[in-house]
C-alpha cells in the first residue's frame, strides 16, 4: 500500500525569506547610492562616500540577483560575504570613527540581518537533501469510489443532531 518516492522539495519559507532579503538589499543599496554622505556621516566615517556608494552598488546587484534568479542560493552567500565586509568596516568605525555609538547600532542591525541570511542559506542548502514523499491516493476509507458515496448519510438528520441540545433521545 502507498508507495514512497524520493523527491526534493523547495523550502518555501526560505525562498520567501530570500525574496524579502532581496527587496531589503535593493532598498539599502538605493539609500547608499542616493545619500552616501548622510550614511557615511551617521556611521562616523566622513569622507568614505565612495566606499558607501560601492557598497550600495553591491547591495543592489545582490538584491536584483536574489529577486530574479531561479536559484537564490549563490546570491544569499553573496549577501553573507557582504555582511562580513560591512561588519568589518563598522568594527573599524566603532574603534576609530567619530560616531562609535551610531556605528555600534548599525553593526547590531547588520548582525541581525546576517542571522537572517545565515538561516536562509541553511534552509536553501537543506533543499538538496531528498525527502520521501508518500502518495496516499489509494486510501479513501470508502468501499466504493468517493463520488458514489456522495450523499450516503442523511444530512438533515446529522445537522439536526449538531444543533445545541440536538440529541432528542433520552440517553438511558
Amino acid at each position: 500500500m502507498s508507495i514512497p518516492r524520493q523527491v526534493t522539495r523547495p523550502d518555501h519559507s526560505a525562498r520567501s525569506l530570500a525574496r524579502g532579503l532581496g527587496w531589503f538589499s535593493v532598498g539599502l543599496g538605493v539609500a547608499q547610492l542616493l545619500a552616501p554622505r548622510q550614511v557615511a556621516g551617521f556611521i562616523g566615517m566622513p569622507g568614505s562616500e565612495g566606499a558607501v556608494r560601492a557598497c550600495g552598488l553591491r547591495e543592489i546587484a545582490t538584491g536584483v540577483g536574489l529577486l530574479l534568479a531561479d536559484d537564490p542560493k549563490p546570491w544569499v552567500y553573496g549577501r553573507i560575504g557582504g555582511d562580513a565586509l560591512d561588519l568589518a568596516g563598522l568594527g573599524w568605525s566603532i574603534e576609530h570613527g567619530h560616531e562609535p555609538a551610531n556605528a555600534a547600532i548599525a553593526a547590531g542591525a547588520v548582525a541581525g540581518i546576517t542571522l537572517l541570511d545565515l538561516g536562509c542559506a541553511k534552509g536553501l542548502d537543506a533543499e538538496r537533501v531528498p525527502s520521501t514523499e508518500w502518495d496516499y491516493g489509494d486510501r479513501s476509507g470508502f468501499p466504493e469510489a468517493a463520488q458514489n458515496m456522495r450523499g450516503r448519510a442523511e444530512p438533515e438528520f446529522a445537522a439536526a443532531r449538531a444543533e445545541p441540545n440536538g440529541y432528542p433521545q433520552q440517553l438511558h
Partner: peptide, 14 residues
Amino acid sequence: DNVPERLSMARAGG
C-alpha cells in the same frame, strides 16, 4: 494544506 501526502489522502476521499 501544504503537506503533499496529506493532500493526496484528501483527494482519495473525494
